[in-house]
Design a protein around this nucleic acid. Sequence first.
DNA 1: GATATTCATGCACACGTGTGCATCCTTCTC
DNA 2: GAGAAGGATGCACACGTGTGCATGAATATC
Lengths: 341, 341
Amino acid sequence: MPVTIKDIAKQARVSHSTVSRALHGSSLISDLTAERIRQTARELGYLPSAAARTLKTNHSQALGVLIRKVDDPFFGDILQGIEEVAQASGYSLFMAASQHTPEREQAILQAMVERRVEGIIICSTPVSLDQSRQLARFGVPIVYINNQAAEEYRYSIYHDDVDGSRQVTRHLIGLGHRRIGYLGNSTAGRSTLDRLSGFQQELKASGLSIPETYIHQVPGGGPDEGLSGLSHFLDLPERPTALICYNDMLAIGVLKGLKQAGIRVPQELSVTGFDNILFSAYTNPPLTTFDQPKQYIGAEAARLVLGLLKADSLGNAPCEPEIRRLRGKLLVRDTTAAPAL
Amino acid sequence: MPVTIKDIAKQARVSHSTVSRALHGSSLISDLTAERIRQTARELGYLPSAAARTLKTNHSQALGVLIRKVDDPFFGDILQGIEEVAQASGYSLFMAASQHTPEREQAILQAMVERRVEGIIICSTPVSLDQSRQLARFGVPIVYINNQAAEEYRYSIYHDDVDGSRQVTRHLIGLGHRRIGYLGNSTAGRSTLDRLSGFQQELKASGLSIPETYIHQVPGGGPDEGLSGLSHFLDLPERPTALICYNDMLAIGVLKGLKQAGIRVPQELSVTGFDNILFSAYTNPPLTTFDQPKQYIGAEAARLVLGLLKADSLGNAPCEPEIRRLRGKLLVRDTTAAPAL
DNA sequence: GATATTCATGCACACGTGTGCATCCTTCTC
DNA sequence: GAGAAGGATGCACACGTGTGCATGAATATC
């Protein structure tokens, strides 16, 4: 139904090869006919078939993006970064969400390979290693973002959570806190471990030690889990004076719980988040958090994939594994202060 | 490079046509050979080329989704709904963001047509009418979500903002408010007009009238604009006792501003939002808002497109225009109360 | 046992695009 | 003016898949 180069050829009384060349600006075609052909193409409203081109050139100009859940505000920024770079390079994005179910994930990756995407970016979702190997067999380069066990994959981009967590902890210690709690998300894999580890490293570096009960994990990373996680700390005989949350969403839940309990922030308890999602600036009081450069991480991931493709098309040997660790910065707002005496 | 049906054919010592038929479960092929072929296909790790299939069958099994900005939390939910339905029907999604620039939008839509997506869903972005007509020429069905001038398009899904706004207004009037302000987003098109209109209709129905200065529009729908919009109302000689905000993000900015100004919510001023984004439940105090069924809207849009495709493939006449208006419900939280006497 | 019928498979073309090679025409060179 | 050189264009095949039609084999019918 749509217009093809054959239609243009007929209209312009040339062969379809000439049309193809003219539209690509080949120097083989005289300027006169080339312009005439382009004109008719415009008149007929011609748009080339990506399918045919992909089939012929083995080049789909598309990337696949696999995320865990679309409505997580964290991914919004990452996607934004990916999109920006991809669009600038003329690549389209296939996007799908695994919704935490391995079968879906399997189906999505398969669909992407069938579409012959040239690269895949996998966000924070725990792809099994043999599945990852299976993908590698198709020769599709894969870049992992903030993945668990990022180091085990050839190409990953991730945020230096250890460093970030150390900075947050140092900030609190600097304010004079000695009893600091950590509220983690047990379902988060690497990132919660890294953040916990940074926390512990910084404590040790400062010669501090805390009771076991000051480390508590909840099964999730939403406000509701923050709310329930808070009660653990409130029930302790000796409460911490500061609470480090795995992410902003947990912290937001914590703030809500503290409000309900009538505990003042930061006077009675300091609270920190992590990620710097949009809303962390609008909590009450505004949340002290760690600004993970989300958009930049997405952009870097896209650049990395595109770089791999370029190297590939130049016939270069596959790049050596590249694992890039990006750093963010501490954002001190109003939920942290020196502890009460 | 990837395995093709020819490779399977060679391996199984049959023709490629037989392979094609066997993999489709055609009754023409004997069960024995069919099973043998499927087995070799599995062994070789065969995945069909979507490009070739699309070219041959004129059927891409893909939808395009055009949104304004990826990192808007509002779209997250809509996308989620679309994705769910599309995935269940075996469709993949091409997604791109226009970032408010018409050139990008043009480029994106063109890319989608080149990819021969079977349908397009356009979210809240003001596509010009002639561009929309141009798309129609390609025979790609388009569904608009919450678009400006939704009624002008053949197929749209949108939220009944007039009704929602009336419910919000009625709630405030019921609490005893007589001086109610409306803070709009002048860049939002239809939706802000509808919400304003619902506000005014409900006032009139209750025999109330308000000064002109109680209606104020700001150029944007983020927290920052809410902050600046608030100052307009605070500077009025006689302040309203309640403020209806165009959306939750504005309301969140307003709450922050009120906190800074030391004005208590809801005792001194009631505030309402609109949309019920995730974070509206975690403001302080929790925001009274209108719950727009975002995910459902996305799902309905996807169902509508798929329905159009089905009708099309059955050779039915193109469906009559369908414009579906969905309703949400008021969510009373803690930012609204009876006005001080 | 000859013919008709059913069943299983292969041949060949099509989808829309890109490209090596051959062909034809023009112009230049001596 | 004959031949060489170069410029412009068409022919034909390829990419991977799907399908109408012909072919051949096996079975059924009388």
